[in-house]
Design a protein around this nucleic acid. Structure first.
Lengths: 193, 193
DNA sequence: CCACGCATGTAAATCGTTACATGATTAA
DNA sequence: TTAATCATGTAACGATTTACATGCGTGG
C-alpha cells in the first residue's frame, strides 16, 4: 500500500472536486506547493489502488483514454479517518543549516552567501504567497477557502521567521569575519608544514 | 555512492573531532537533531566508502573491534567542496498543513486539536533549544560554537513562528466553529437521503 | 553473572522521484 | 503540420529507515 500520507493527499484533492490524475498533480503543485508535493509515480498507482478498494470511482474523461476520478461515500469516510490520525513527523533535513553548522571550515563570507540565498528564497516565497492570497477567487470554493488561508498564513509566518533569522545571522557573520575567523585556505599550512 | 548530503554530514562530524560510527550517530542525534538526522544504515556504509576513497582514516578504537575515524587532508578538502556547492532543496511535506488544508472534512474542533498539538511541539522545541544554549560548554569547541549558535537561533525563530501562527489559527478556528461550520457527520444525510 | 550500553555491520522493506514510452487534442 | 499541452502508466533507480545478527566491556 502507498503511504497513508499520499492516500490522504489524493483523497483530499478529490474531496474538493473530481479530477484526472494529471489535473491532480497540477492542483497539488500549484495550490499545495508551499507545503506538499506528489509526483505522477505516486498519484497514478495510488488512484488505481483506491479504485480497487472502492474508495474512488473512475468516470468518463473529457477525451479518449482519460478518466476523472471521484470520491465514493466510503472514500469520504476513509478520508475522515486518515485526517484524524496524528501526522507522522518526518526526520528534519535542512541543507542550509547543515552547511552553516560546519561553517568554520568554509569561513564567514561563504556562509553569508549561503544565508543571503536562503533569505532571497524566503522573500520570493513571501511575495508568491501574497500574490496567491489576492489572486485567488474566494467564492469558487468558499467552504474550503478559510482552511486554505490558514496554510497560506503558516507559509508567511515561516518565511518571515527565515528572513528575520537571516538578517540577525548576517550581522553575526559580519562581526565574525571582522574578527578574522577567515575560511581555511585551500592548501592549509598546518596540513603540509 | 551515498548521497552528497550524507557524505557532508559524516565528513563534517569528523571535522569537529575523530569518533566512532556509533558516537557519530549519537552526536548527530543530540547536536544536529533539530535540523538533521542520519541512521546507522547510512553512517556505516558511508564511512566505508569514504575510507576506500582515502577521505577518512580508520584508527584504533578504545575496545576490540571498534575504530575511530578521522579526516585525512584530502577528506577535509573534499568537505570544503561539498559545503560550497548549493544545498539541494527537498520537496516540502508538512503533515499538519496537509490535514488542515482539508479541514472542512474534519471540522474546526478537530482542526484546533491538531493545531494545539503543533503548538505544544513547538513550545517544547523552544524550551529544549534554550536548555541546550545554556547547558553547553562554549569553551570546548570554541571555533565551532558561533556557527552552532546560528543553527540554534534558526530553530528558535522557526518555533516562535509556529507558536504565533498557531495562536492566530486557533482564534480563526474558534470563529469558524461559532459560525457553525461543523465537521461532516460520520453518516452524511447528503450521501444517504 | 547478567543486564545494559557501546559498537559494527547487513538485509529487507519502504518510500519516493525521474525518466521513459505512448498517444490524444488543441493552438499556432 | 507541428509543437505544446493534456493524459496515463511503468520501470528503474535512489535514498533512507528498520530490524536483525553479533559481540565486547563494565557496573551492579
Amino acid at each position: 500500500m502507498r503511504s497513508r500520507q499520499t492516500r490522504t493527499a489524493v483523497l483530499g484533492a478529490l474531496s474538493i472536486q473530481p479530477m484526472t490524475g494529471y489535473a491532480m498533480r497540477e492542483a497539488i503543485r500549484t495550490t499545495l506547493g508551499h507545503f506538499w508535493s506528489e509526483s505522477f509515480g505516486q498519484i497514478y498507482p495510488t488512484l488505481a489502488e483506491l479504485e480497487q478498494e472502492g474508495l474512488v470511482e473512475r468516470g468518463e474523461g473529457t477525451r479518449t483514454g482519460s478518466s476523472t476520478f471521484a470520491l465514493t461515500p466510503a472514500g469520504r469516510a476513509h478520508l475522515r479517518t486518515l485526517l484524524a490520525d496524528p501526522p507522522q513527523p518526518d526526520p528534519p533535513r535542512n541543507g542550509v543549516l547543515l552547511r552553516l553548522f560546519f561553517g568554520r571550515v568554509l569561513g564567514p563570507e561563504a556562509c553569508a552567501d549561503l544565508v543571503r540565498d536562503a533569505r532571497d528564497r524566503a522573500e520570493r516565497q513571501l511575495a508568491g504567497l501574497a500574490a496567491e492570497r489576492t489572486d485567488t477567487d474566494h467564492t469558487a470554493h468558499a467552504d474550503d477557502s478559510p482552511y486554505w488561508l490558514l496554510t497560506i498564513s503558516a507559509g508567511e509566518h515561516a518565511a518571515r521567521a527565515t528572513i528575520a533569522w537571516a538578517d540577525e545571522t548576517l550581522a553575526t557573520l559580519a562581526t565574525l569575519a571582522a574578527e578574522g575567523h577567515g575560511g581555511e585556505p585551500p592548501t592549509s599550512s598546518k596540513e603540509t608544514p
